[in-house]
Simulated scan of single mutants.
Amino acid sequence: MRVLFIGGTGTISAAAVARAAALGYTVTVLNRAASSVRQLPSGVEHLVADVRDPAAVAAALGTRSFDVVADFLTFTPKHAYAAVELFRGRTGQYLFISSASAYQKPPARLPITESTPLRNPFWQYSRDKIACEDIFTQAFREDDFPVTIVRPSHTYDHTGLPLLFGWTDVHRMRAGLPVVVHGDGTSLWTLTHTNDFAVGFVGLFGLPVAGEAFTITSDDVLPWDAVYRSVAAAAGVPDPVLVHVASEKIAAVAPAFGPGLLGDKAHSVMFDNSRVKSLVPAFGTTIRFADAAHAILAWHVAHPQARVVNAEYMALSDRLAAL
């Protein structure tokens, strides 16, 4: 099976590339060859082109076609229209990576399923993903464009810290300083390890699922306080000082954080993965965040350049904690 990844070195896509290569697929990755901490596996073909330049992509691909195209880099309607034009008639399956943040916010009921309405009045990123889904779906209905929509939620790997202020929060934990947690710390959040996601995602390759949508997330659901305490335990801090601040107040003080909080993380979420599990029996939750937190901290210890204490986040944390 010939598979083209558009992207291929990001948090989610790198694990999917590795999974596809390990299963023996003929894998090609197309991206701008920007530096990345995630290297391509041996034997994976690398094509260099800016996906935002359709002419450059067409030149890089030539006349080739693929059994599967996995698109990790379409974020706006303009990108979606270009993708349909470029890959119409050149692939048997087109997997578009949307986002679980596109689901109704706040959710009317849990768990969230593929039939949950798509509506997010808080976050432009999510609204753009919804618009992309509409374009691909229209192309499927009118021109038989073989799209399958995949909606991951918060997916992480060994480099990711799912904390509001990243490594700055770890620094504050170790220094005994208050660490800001949005809300009251009890809202539920779903964290998916990228290796688990890759099993479900690559498992869809070649299946007759055109026109369908799939949620692919973990069943590892934790309150936010438990997320922070898992990181603290891995960092050697048994009792971190967690200070709870309403998401609306954080958004008012630091508007840049507003869309991601009010449009996603402020709401309890858990997902029904039964649809993908019915087609990919190997898919499941094998990596829990409480265990993965130790690998994340170990990676940061081994990479000093990632241990950045942001002065702006330090001041913002103090200001929010004082509220």
Rank of each mutant, 00 (worst) to 15 (best):
Y156Q: 12
G183E: 14
P41S: 10
E248P: 11
G236L: 08
P240Q: 13
H182S: 07
L110N: 12
V301C: 02
E248V: 09
S99N: 14
A213N: 05
D318Y: 14
E133P: 15
A251W: 00
I97V: 14
A34M: 02
P162L: 07
D318I: 15
V199T: 06
D134V: 05
L323I: 13
G176Y: 03
H158E: 13
W224A: 10
R307F: 09
A251Y: 00
T168K: 11
T26R: 09
T11N: 14
G211F: 04
D318Q: 11
P77D: 09
A175R: 04
D144F: 08
S218D: 13
L161Y: 10
G24C: 11
E212L: 14
T168F: 08
I130H: 11
N273R: 14
G200P: 07
A256G: 06
V308K: 12
R19C: 11
R90M: 02
G7N: 09
D134P: 01
S126P: 02
A139E: 07
Q39L: 06
M270K: 11
A210V: 00
A322E: 11
A226N: 09
D53C: 05
S42V: 15
H46M: 03
R174S: 11
L204V: 07
L73I: 11
H154L: 13
Y103Q: 04
Y81W: 06
T186N: 07
N31T: 13
P208L: 13
V199L: 01
P77E: 03
G43W: 05
D225P: 06
T28M: 10
A82I: 01
W299V: 01
L177P: 08
V269C: 08
Y103S: 04
F289I: 15
V243M: 15
V69M: 03
T285Y: 04
Y125N: 00
A282E: 10
T116S: 10
R88G: 02
I250W: 12
E133Q: 08
N310G: 00
H79L: 02
R172L: 11
D272A: 06
H244M: 15
H294D: 00
P240L: 13
D291I: 04
T28L: 07
I97Y: 00
K129S: 12
L261I: 10
T217Y: 01
S65I: 01
D318A: 14
T285H: 10
D53Y: 01
H294E: 08
R32C: 12
A295V: 06
I130Q: 01
V308C: 09
E142N: 15
G92F: 02
A256K: 15
R32V: 02
F197I: 05
F289H: 11
D272L: 12
F66K: 08
L177R: 10
A175G: 01
P162V: 10
H171C: 14
L23I: 06
A22Q: 10
L297N: 00
E312N: 07
V48Y: 08
P41T: 07
K265Y: 06
A233M: 11
V199M: 05
R52N: 07
L279V: 05
L47I: 04
Q124R: 14
A55K: 15
Y156T: 12
Q104W: 03
V253W: 03
N310L: 04
V181T: 15
G206W: 03
V276F: 03
T155W: 01
F87P: 06
F136G: 04
F72T: 03
L73K: 04
A16G: 03
V269I: 11
E212V: 07
R38P: 05
D225G: 15
